[in-house]
């Protein structure tokens, strides 16, 4: 069964078609990469999948349930999470608080109960903190947990976004250029992290410009060019595809 299915998706910005007639499906438990030159529409695709942009046409299915047009928070509730190319860390909080927000869906206290600080709230608060620590540990961020997010370097903020997403226990994780701006060691660590995420049972949809990373860890690769699907298949096949080579050389 495919976890995510996209059918004839289309997005128009004024006169520009950022995504045209795109269909593909993502099987469960793999690392599925989306590559393409700058401006190919990769981020736009992520924004469509999470309904931050409304599609102009087409439909999206998650676990065979149609999710087109559902508000982002409902999509998140179904088990889709993402990181952002333009970081969207909560800079007004500490690292662990960022990740605790990620646990939002796994806890339930409302405003009134919080204001009154009922005993159940105290209990849940402990539980949430534990879950957040676990996610931080998974991403190797334990030592930074009480640091204000605003003071962390870029590379750590990228990891923090991953930890925050993982804390929500998603089935599908969309990662938008997680390696951009990282040095070689950091990229290697990231590579291991993504593999471990996939091993833990989370399907990863990866947008990335770092080709060696993509080819090393992906089971399938989809190539976008000018918003259209150029090719899709296992990495070895994609590397040899003449259309793909032409698109990248023509850049």
């Amino acid at each position: 069964m495919s976890l995510l299915k996209v059918k004839n998706l289309e997005k128009q910005f004024g006169g520009l078609k950022a995504i045209s007639d795109l269909s593909f499906s993502v099987p469960e438990n793999i690392i599925f990469s989306i590559i393409g030159p700058n401006g190919a529409g990769k981020t736009t695709l992520f924004n469509l999948l999470t309904n931050i942009y409304k599609p102009s046409a087409g439909s999206i299915f998650f676990k065979d349930k149609e999710i087109t047009g559902l508000p982002p928070f409902k999509i998140a509730r179904l088990g889709i999470s993402r990181t952002f190319q333009n970081l969207q860390v909560f800079l007004n909080m500490s690292a662990i608080e960022n990740v605790m927000v990620g646990c939002h869906l796994r806890s339930r206290t409302g405003l009134l109960a919080s204001a009154l600080r009922l005993p159940s709230v105290i209990q849940e608060e402990k539980e949430v903190r534990r879950m957040a620590e676990e996610a931080l540990h998974f991403c190797g961020l334990s030592e930074y947990k009480d640091r204000p997010a605003a003071g962390l370097p870029y590379g750590l903020l990228k990891k923090l976004e991953v930890a925050r997403s993982l804390a929500s226990k998603p089935k599908l994780l969309l990662m938008d250029e997680p390696a951009a701006g990282l040095n070689d060691t950091e990229t290697q660590e990231l590579c291991q992290l993504i593999k471990r995420i996939c091993e833990s049972g989370i399907t990863v949809l990866l947008v990335e410009h770092n080709m060696s990373l993509v080819m090393e860890i992906s089971q399938r690769v989809l190539v976008l060019n000018y918003g259209r699907l150029l090719a899709e298949g296992p990495p070895e096949q994609i590397q040899k595809n003449p259309d793909v080579i032409a698109a990248y050389l023509g850049e």
Binding site: T50, F73, H104
Partner: peptide, 14 residues
């Protein structure tokens, strides 16, 4: 605070 920090990210956290 999440809404304050980034509304889009807050939504993506459910």
């Amino acid at each position: 605070s999440a809404v304050h920090g980034s509304e889009i990210a807050a939504q993506m956290m459910g």
